[in-house]
């Protein structure tokens, strides 16, 4: 890979495999390159390996085999302090939300910004802007544990976006949302993408991944199956 190509690459995976005991091959020989500013939908059935891939990319798990590079950092060789700095540049919306139930919505969102030492004004403004955008402003001071699943999901997304990450990983971000709220979330993602954020969204919600310019990666039994624009995927799925 040339220097210029490397600079333009956000995610680079080469022959990545991950097996969970006793014998579950979550990912097998996955190779993938995602350029900066791309918006990719990772689709596939439950258990196909989407969440495993996102966990490897966010550095929560390590692959058994293969090579992962994020924004030029080789995750197998990265030092602790460097990994911490890299994590501040990656926003992750987890499938299980990972919210702190005894903290307010605002405190949960502020978390990702506080570790980057953002100013109080920035944190306040960003929290209010995101809550307004996701129709949650009235929940600003509500404890996260008292929210519905759909509301918790939106708070988790707001926290992932709040620190203006370079890379955003979202695991089933609309899984608990109605169609109208899912549109709000997708509008937020699209706006982030327009500002240069690279997005990798794991989903099996067909309704959200059909828009121009985005790419779909299908994963089946831990292997990459298709890598095409959405309309082509839809046609392929219709033929199947």
């Amino acid at each position: 890979m040339s220097g210029e190509e490397k600079r333009l690459t956000m995610i680079d995976l080469a022959r990545v495999s991950k097996t969970f005991p006793p014998d579950v091959h979550a990912l097998a020989d996955v190779s993938l390159r995602i350029r900066r500013g791309e918006m990719i939908f990772l689709t596939g059935q439950s258990g196909a390996g989407k969440t495993t891939l996102l966990r490897l990319l966010s550095g929560i798990d390590r692959p058994d085999k293969g090579y992962i590079e994020i924004a030029g950092h080789d995750l197998s060789r990265i030092a602790d302090a460097e990994m911490q700095r890299l994590r501040r540049r990656i926003g992750v919306a987890y499938q299980d939300f990972k919210l702190l139930p005894d903290k307010t919505v605002a405190q949960n969102i502020a978390f990702s910004m506080e570790v980057s030492y953002r100013s109080r004004q920035f944190i306040r403004a960003q929290t209010e802007r995101l809550l307004t955008e996701l129709h949650l402003l009235d929940k600003h001071d509500t404890l996260a544990g008292r929210l519905s699943r759909g509301e918790q999901q939106r708070v988790s997304i707001a926290r992932a976006v709040a620190n203006e990450p370079e890379l955003l990983l979202a695991d089933e971000p609309t899984g608990n949302l109605d169609a109208e709220t899912a549109v709000l979330v997708m509008q937020l993602f699209r706006r982030c993408n327009e500002q240069g954020v690279t997005l990798l969204i794991a989903t099996h919600d067909q309704a959200i991944y059909d828009f121009p310019g985005s790419k779909i990666i299908r994963i089946e039994n831990g292997r990459l199956a298709i890598q095409k624009p959405p309309t082509a995927v839809r046609k392929a799925e219709a033929r199947a």
Binding site: S58, I60, D80, A81, M83, Q84, R85, L86, R87, R88, R89, I90, V92, K98, L100, K103, F111, S112, V115, S116, R159, N163
Partner: peptide, 16 residues
Amino acid sequence: KKELELLRLVGASNSY
């Protein structure tokens, strides 16, 4: 425990 786990996930430094 949960908070500390989350702090690591969002990239908090050891000294933080």
